[in-house]
């Protein structure tokens, strides 16, 4: 099977869905680039991270829309286009910029169907780049999925690898609800086997990345890689872990998490976001409520601290949860009883 980066896999999903369904449009800042430039080269960017490359030459300006820097109008327009029967894939370049257009997500997209009834459909996808690790500092590094996950009416996808990213992007475009699709910038270059043909992966189905009887580790997005590395290290000392990647945080595959915790009795949740109202807290609360009797040790949360993302490399690497911290947390759960 061909090996592709997450960047290539998402790009392929966009190509395939645009080819399959003429209602799919892509819009955002520099999704093509080059408009109004002096070189005459139209696709001068293809997205600042290259995710939308090749779409403009193939599908044309009517369906691949470069916008001014106007996030509220981008998402508002995507909302309206979706209500009117198109399937927009809008890009917010960095998830942090969502502050500029939050109303269109929080009060509009998320609520259309509930407020208007079942005739209203808003089948839009909002793609955003997220995550720390590039020294991009406080306004370009946040992992905001807890914010979106907390909003009823939104579906939230956070792929951890290229294979999942392609299948989940295709599912997101075909889905009839608004989907927030968060791409971790440190994963764009990571590759794995990805089939050429289109395929959709269902929302709300976690993936069991690694199986073990001692500790359940639930990790999100980039943290899945870290959890896997931690599990390797732990296995060498005889501690075997289930590593669960929920893949979507809304809906969340509670069953797989609960089933695993019932078997292991120990839970570590790894979340790159700050701890308050995080996915780590969410999963920990769910397990405390529904599998309390099975727990052999307190649940451990490995998260970023309650701070913005620092710029300096030394501080940023302290900020981001590390495989080492996951190992320590897992060991701690083994130490209780």
């Amino acid at each position: 099977m061909p090996v592709k980066t997450m960047r290539e896999a998402i790009n392929e999903a966009l190509h395939q869905e645009m080819a399959r369904d003429p209602r799919v449009i892509v819009l955002g800042e520099d999704v093509s680039g080059g408009a109004g430039g002096t070189s005459g080269q139209r696709e001068a960017a293809g997205g600042v991270f290259g995710l939308t490359k090749g779409l403009l030459p193939r599908f044309g300006e009517a369906r691949v829309i470069d916008t001014p820097i106007s996030e509220a109008a981008i998402i508002g327009a995507a909302n309206g286009a979706a209500l009117a029967g198109l399937r927009p894939v809008a890009e917010i370049m960095f998830a942090d910029f969502v502050g500029v257009c939050f109303d269109q997500i929080l009060n509009q997209a998320a609520k259309f169907r509930y407020m208007f009834g079942p005739n209203a459909k808003a089948p839009l996808v909002i793609r955003m780049t997220m995550g720390a690790g590039m020294g991009a500092a406080a306004q370009h590094s946040q992992t905001l999925y807890p914010l979106f996950t907390a909003i009823p009416g939104l579906k939230v996808v956070i792929p951890s690898n290229a294979y999942d990213a392609k299948g989940l992007m295709i599912a997101a475009i075909r889905d009839d609800d608004p989907v927030i699709f968060l791409e971790h910038k440190m994963l764009y270059g990571e590759s794995c086997e990805v089939p050429d043909e289109p395929y959709a992966l269902p929302f709300g189905e976690a993936s069991l990345v690694r199986a073990g009887d001692d500790v359940t580790i639930v990790a999100f997005a980039r943290m899945v890689n870290f959890a896997r590395a931690a599990a390797d290290e732990l296995a060498a000392e005889g501690i075997h872990c289930d590593v669960i990647d929920p893949r979507t945080t809304s809906p969340l595959d509670e069953d797989m998490i609960l089933e695993s915790v019932r078997a292991t009795g120990r839970l570590v949740v790894v979340d790159e976001s700050p701890p308050r109202c995080s996915l780590a807290a969410d999963v920990a609360a769910m397990v405390a409520e529904r599998a309390f009797g099975y727990l052999k040790a307190p649940v451990r949360q490995v998260t970023a601290p309650h701070t913005p993302v620092p710029f300096a490399t030394d501080l940023e690497s302290l900020y981001i949860p590390s495989p080492e911290k996951i190992v320590q947390a897992a060991r701690a759960t083994m130490a209780s009883r």
């Binding site: 820097i69 942090d96 910029f97 502050g99 500029v100 020294g135 500092a137 406080a138 306004q139 370009h140 913005p308 620092p310 710029f311 300096a312 490399t313 030394d314 501080l315």
Partner: peptide, 30 residues
């Protein structure tokens, strides 16, 4: 990104500020 930086290395190129001089920050949000 040094600790003695103008903003303690926490802001970086895109967030340099010196409010004592009336410079209320570079800004990463357009």
């Amino acid at each position: 990104g040094r600790a003695e930086g103008l903003c303690n290395g926490k802001g970086g190129s895109m967030h340099i500020a010196d409010v004592t001089k009336g410079m209320m920050g570079a800004n990463g949000i357009v």
